[in-house]
Each structure stands twice: as C-alpha cells, then as structure tokens.
Design a binder for these strands. Structure first.
Lengths: 191, 191
DNA sequence: GTGATTTCCTGTCATTTGGCAAGCAGGTTT
DNA sequence: AAACCTGCTTGCCAAATGACAGGAAATCAC
C-alpha cells in the first residue's frame, strides 16, 4: 500500500504510513459490483490484487466495456465520484479482489490536511487521463489486430479472466471479428 | 474571465477577481503554436475566444488531430504540463485566439494559497476526463455519421475553421470517407 | 493576372468488418 | 447418459471503409 502512495509522488515512508491509516481494507468477490449504474460513486479504491471491468450500456441495450482495471490501479468512476452525480457505468469484479478504499469526504479531508497527498491525487487523475488519451490515439491510428495484441502484451491477465465478448467491445469490434483476428494472429504478427 | 472561474466551482466574485489577477493575457495569431512537440507544456491557457487544435503524428508520419478547443475551454497538454515531460503533441491556433495563461509554478502557488481554486483546478481535469471518456464511448458505439453529426451540432465552429482532413482524423476516418459522409448526410437521417 | 498549391469531391476496386446462422466444445442439470 | 446452456469459432453475404487516382474549385505566391 505504501508503494502505491509513493509510486506517484514525493511522499516519504512516514507520511505514507499515516495516510494509509486512513484507508479501509475492502474485499470483492468475483462478479460482485463495486459500483452500479445510477449510484453515486463513493469508493476511491486502490486495487492491490484482482481484476475489474467497467461497462456501460448503449442505447440498444448492449453492454460496452469501457475499462479494465488490473492490480496497482486506482478504481473509481471519476465523474461520478468528484461531481457527486449518478454513474453511467457499472464496475464489476472479474476475479476476487482486495484493496483499500476511502470515501469522497475522507479523500477531501486528506487533501486538505496533506499537501503531499494532493500531489498524489492529482497524479492519479493525470495518469488516468494520459492512459485514456493514449487509448484513443491507438483507436484511431492502430488496426484492431494491433490493439488486440497490445492489450495481450500489456495486460495478459485480462485475457485470462474476461470473456471475448467483453474484450471485443473494449476494443471497439464485434466478438465475431475479434474471434477471426485471434485465429489469424497465431503465427506471430501480420506475416 | 470571472465567469470561467465561477463556472466550475464554489468561487465568489471577489475571490474570482483576485485569482484572475494572477493570469496574464495571451494572444495567438492564426496558425501560431501554443505548444510544440518536444516542449514541456507550461501554459495553463483559458481560451476566451478563438479555436485551437491539438495533433500528434503517427508512426507513418501522418498527423492525427487529437482535440479541438473551442472558446470557454482550458487548453493544455495535461500530461506534459503536470508531469513536466516533453509533449507528444502540438497545439496550434486555427483562428486568432485570446485568453489568459498562468505557468505551472504560478498554478501551484495558487493551488497552495487558495483552496477554492484547487476545486476549480480539479474540476478542469475531471471535466476533461469525462469529455474524453464520452468521446471514446461514442467512438465505440456510434457510427462515423453519427459522430460527425454530433460534432457538427456541438461545435459548428470547428467545421468553419478546420479543414476536412483534420476533422477526419479526429473522428477516426479518412478524409475520403468523411467527404462521402458529408455528401450523404444531407437529409439528417441515420443509417 | 498567372501559375502553383491546397482543399475537397468522386469514381473504382480491394479489404475489413458486421449481421446472421450454424457448428463445436466444455460444463451443468435432469 | 441425455438434454441443455454458454462461450467461442466459422461460413456466407452485404455494408462500410480504405487506398489510389483524377478533377474541380478555392487559395496563395509572385
């Protein structure tokens, strides 16, 4: 947990321990929801181990996976959490999960009391923003095959635990198409 | 300018004026760059009027437009600005622009001195994050035609000032394809 | 004004992807 | 064991898109 806090900002060990003391441990069983659509997200959740996915429903009622959260990530629906508005998304555990949480009120109290934690909080937002931007750029410039292989390389655990259908919507293709891509991508690259 | 500051947080008129005093006016001529690839972004730029675009280059050397910034937006490359790293993107004025800027150091000083401005700064990040997320979801669930028409509706000024080529890469299609979509989308139908 | 460049549209054809349906494999229930 | 899900794959065909090339119109340089 201290590693988490120190990973993104200038926080020394002592400060990290004091900040960490404000968090509560949280466990999620596989398939359990961290957040359901319509709720206001109130969990700022540091995931120690496990895997979650976020998903929304499009107008036709189809689920679209908007994110996967591997261990080491901070899991929350940013807009709902900070704006205190009902979430458009669900966040569900793909495996048993464990980590630590604090509420919006607790987070703000910590930000107020500890400038160095503010830096950390800002880093979480900035990092998430940059990751999303990079994903958007890949969506525009890379082929589906390339995006699939990049996911395979960067987060192999997702392939282990998420059904193809969810991965397909995350990549922006149908499960049919992804299945073909998997079939063709066997022998190492495009050939 | 005060409207800017008050638009996203609990800041009263007096506070807004004092905060606004820390900013410097900035003008950009059409085609001038706010940020060039390789530089560290040090402008936290409130755009009062004008229009800018951000673009990156893909591995093949093609420009990809990553964002348009209409008036009323805060213009910066988040990752470069906050992480103090060289930007992967360029930000260029599509029209003459006017607004106010502060540097990274000034922004931090303001955050330190004024808790209510911290809220505002967080709001800028959260709003940008939510907008990008929404765009990503549209990229997955909506057709190119729908995305084009949504842009047309939400930011008609972009169509006035940005060449089709730039809009096409922003939407994730070729200019050829976008041209056909424009030809066919006359009646405003779906499909 | 003239020529060159840029922007945008359009035609043709190949490739990718989606929609649909059937098939197959693994696991579960009866 | 047989029937039944569920997840994944594959075949077939149509729609969407990309690559390439040509041409009209606007813009820019001189």
């Amino acid at each position: 947990m201290r590693r988490f806090l120190q990973s993104r900002g200038p926080i020394n060990a002592e400060q990290a321990l004091e900040i960490a003391a404000q968090f509560s441990p949280k466990l999620l069983a596989k398939n359990e929801f961290l957040l359901r659509k319509g709720q206001v997200c109130d969990d700022y959740f540091f995931l120690d181990h496990g895997l979650l996915r976020a998903f929304a429903s499009d107008p036709d009622g189809n689920e679209v996976t908007t994110a996967f959260y591997p261990s080491g990530q901070t899991v929350l629906e940013v807009s709902s959490f900070f704006n205190r508005t009902p979430s458009q998304e669900n966040i569900q555990a793909l495996t048993d999960c464990a980590g630590w949480v604090i509420s919006f009120a607790q987070l703000n109290a910590l930000f107020h009391a500890r400038p160095e934690f503010r830096e950390f909080g800002r880093g979480v937002l900035v990092q998430g923003f940059a990751a999303l931007k990079s994903r958007m750029l890949a969506m525009i410039t890379n082929s589906t095959t390339e995006r699939y292989e990049e996911l395979l390389h960067s987060s192999p655990e997702v392939l282990q635990h998420a059904p193809i259908k969810h991965i397909a919507t995350y990549l922006g293709v149908t499960d049919t198409s992804l299945s073909r891509i998997r079939a063709g991508a066997k022998g190492g690259g495009k050939a």
